[in-house]
Design a protein around this nucleic acid. Structure first.
Lengths: 180, 180
DNA sequence: ACAGATCGTATGTAAAACAGATGAATTGTC
DNA sequence: GACAATTCATCTGTTTTACATACGATCTGT
């Protein structure tokens, strides 16, 4: 998914008023900036999310953490390996359940987290720069409304229903053929 | 990049006012819907873009097409393989330059394109549903402004400059270690 | 006509994600 | 209290995807 990660200049013509396109342009612009701002810590953006979760001291082992972040548990394993190797977090066996390994941020990890947070705020300002302050808050508010609604109907079967609702000639699932 | 394709529920807590987060939620919501709506044609979203380009009859061979869409030329090769196998486009040798292979949409390809276009318009309405008509046009306009500016400073060195500008402790490039 | 460049394709390689198996540790039941 | 079943984190193997490179075919220059 990301399904789409087109790099730079693409379809510059008549799709200027297309919502999906403009949304993608703005989002990718932010993602590019944000990625650059967190590229110094292992795991990139996901490493930051893990660090943030650890610094906020939220409960649960690394499995729960993986589920919350939407990554596979095996990914979380070597994500934490790199993060721990960098001295930002620690795996600490849970005294209550020694199978669990609590993920706690080190002193340096907490400092790095707050530092990166301020960076990301700058990234937001960078993206919103072309708007004057009044328009910025309007945009934030509208976006917040959209996000709230999008979250409520996020479940997968909903888009499936929408597909069947609009589909005309989709009998089966034509998976992509292997390259050979 | 996608760099980030987190699936569903993630960091539900204090980041509600975070621009990057809400932007990502809305964008992923649209992407999910749009992907579902174009999943019936080979290559998914990129297959649709190729089909759209072919149906609009834009000039140039498949190499130029690949560059415009931001995908590798080798990807374009088997992308067109699948698309041609499905009878949506044809590779036609350019009479002026027989190295080039013009990509033209078949009759069925054009029909599929227009059909998919209307579907994607429904997807837009679906995302913008929580807003009343006035707010929708406001949102579209603000987003258009942001996209225009983002496009102008998209070049990579710009974000690099921004990184160095804000970086505090980034001496070298700590590439991620291989898993083993 | 011949050297060099360009287009599309084929091939190999590296990185990333997912599924399944493994070992350690807990819970339940008898 | 012992034993089966479950859960957690990790390891291993497979698959997919993108990229880099090499190749044959074709064009353009001299």
């Amino acid at each position: 998914m990301p399904p789409t990660r087109p790099s730079s200049a693409e379809i510059p013509d008549a799709l200027d008023s297309d919502l999906g396109w403009t949304l993608g342009v703005v989002f990718r612009s932010y993602v590019r900036t944000a990625n650059a701002l967190v590229s110094h810590l292992p795991g990139g953006p996901r490493g930051y999310q893990v660090l943030a979760a650890a610094a906020q001291g939220l409960p649960g082992g690394q499995g729960a953490l993986a589920q919350r972040l939407g990554v596979d548990k095996t990914v979380m394993t070597y994500l934490l390996d790199d993060l721990e190797k960098a001295g930002l977090v620690e795996r600490r066996p849970d005294p209550a359940d020694r199978r669990n390994k609590r993920v706690v941020a080190t002193e340096r990890g907490r400092a790095t987290w707050t530092d990166t947070q301020t960076r990301l705020e700058h990234a937001e300002d960078h993206v919103l720069a072309p708007l004057d302050p009044a328009d910025r808050s309007v945009f934030r508010e509208l976006l917040r409304k959209l996000a709230a609604q999008a979250n409520s109907l996020d479940p997968v079967h909903d888009t499936c229903r929408l597909v069947e609702e609009l589909a005309s000639d989709v009998p089966a699932k034509p998976r992509r053929s292997p390259r050979g």
